[in-house]
């Protein structure tokens, strides 16, 4: 087995599926990744940024056991980087604790000697210096991945699984589209100020938007005007001060397309803008601009959803 490099991404895989932020994490380490969990060989082929891949196939993805299993392998690794996805967030502290490393969670950048941590509701960026071996988690969606490369042939690492008390998995339920975290959604319906009429209950409108989005297999997002008004949670706000998303399809309803909003939009392949203003920036950047009354269109879509 090749010796593991000094900087290594550790990514938990379930049934061959990579978690959100996996490729970004790998890109951040320069391409070295250890995949652990079930279906690792399959997942290795899905990587777009790896230059060297190790796999540890383990039926157990419980964080206690997995940390105990992987810990001994990481002796020579100075920086262990995990995506701050649910499984990454579970495993990272257990790995840090088990191997006596400092944990730097919630990084937006990880260098060779420092990491930048996002704090205080994402308004503060704290740079910390590494004083020894570390475990770092990287927030998904903050860096992008550059040009995809062919995945390398993975090196299988055999391990003796360790047994540590973990919760017993009962069931995994398929996602309901409306709860898909926005960052991971590949279709998003965004609602803006133009979707809510003066005096109307914005919260109800956003609820309808969420239902219509679910019907279209999409998630609902919003502009800051909407989230500031309290019509949608702040986790729904797309933009430079909100969530940075990267969907394939973006449908903007009543959104003007301010830079702070589109700055968080990634590069959707398809953009539709429904707006009464044909020359607003959102419509200008759309493949299809529909000049119509957004609240009415939403109501019509909702009617069809119910009839369907």
């Amino acid at each position: 087995m090749n010796a593991l490099p000094e900087v290594l991404a550790v990514v938990v895989v379930r049934d061959g599926a990579l978690p959100g932020g996996a490729d970004e994490t790998v890109a951040e380490t320069g391409g070295a990744v250890l995949l652990a969990g079930t279906g690792t060989a399959r997942a290795a082929k899905e990587l777009r940024t790896a230059r060297s891949t190790w796999t540890v196939e383990s039926a157990q993805v419980g964080p206690g056991s997995l940390a105990a299993t992987l810990g001994p392998l990481l002796d020579g690794v100075r920086i262990v980087l995990l995506p701050a996805s649910p499984d990454g967030r579970d495993l990272a502290p257990r790995l840090a604790f088990g191997t006596g490393r400092t944990l730097h969670a919630g990084a937006i950048r990880c260098g060779t000697d420092t990491a930048d941590l996002s704090r205080a509701d994402d308004s503060l960026e704290i740079r910390v210096r590494f004083t020894g071996p570390v475990v770092v988690t990287l927030t998904p969606g903050v860096r992008g991945i550059g040009r995809p490369i062919e995945p390398p042939e993975p090196v299988t690492v055999d391990v003796t699984p360790a047994e540590v008390l973990d919760a017993e998995p009962v069931e995994v339920r398929a996602p309901e589209p409306e709860t898909v975290e926005l960052t991971e959604a590949d279709r998003i319906l965004g609602g803006g100020a133009g979707l809510v009429r003066r005096g109307e209950d914005g919260t109800a409108v956003m609820r309808t938007l969420t239902e219509v989005a679910a019907w279209l297999g999409a998630s609902a997002g919003a502009t800051r005007v909407v989230t500031d008004a309290g019509w949608a949670g702040h986790d729904r706000q797309i933009g430079t001060t909100g969530v940075v998303v990267d969907p394939k399809l973006y449908i903007a309803l009543g959104i003007s397309g301010a830079a702070q909003h589109t700055g968080g939009l990634g590069r959707p392949e398809h953009v539709v803008s429904i707006n009464t203003d044909p020359s607003c920036p959102m419509t200008a950047m759309a493949d299809l601009g529909i000049i119509a009354d957004a609240p009415e269109v939403l109501r019509e879509l909702d009617r069809r959803r119910r009839d369907a």
């Binding site: 704290i126 903050v142 430079t240």
Partner: peptide, 19 residues
């Protein structure tokens, strides 16, 4: 204690795109 180098207002990181 973490070894803090600096604390700055958060700015979105430049995203990497294919060269």
């Amino acid at each position: 204690r973490a070894d803090v180098v600096s604390a700055r207002p958060r700015r979105p990181r430049a995203r990497e795109h294919p060269a």
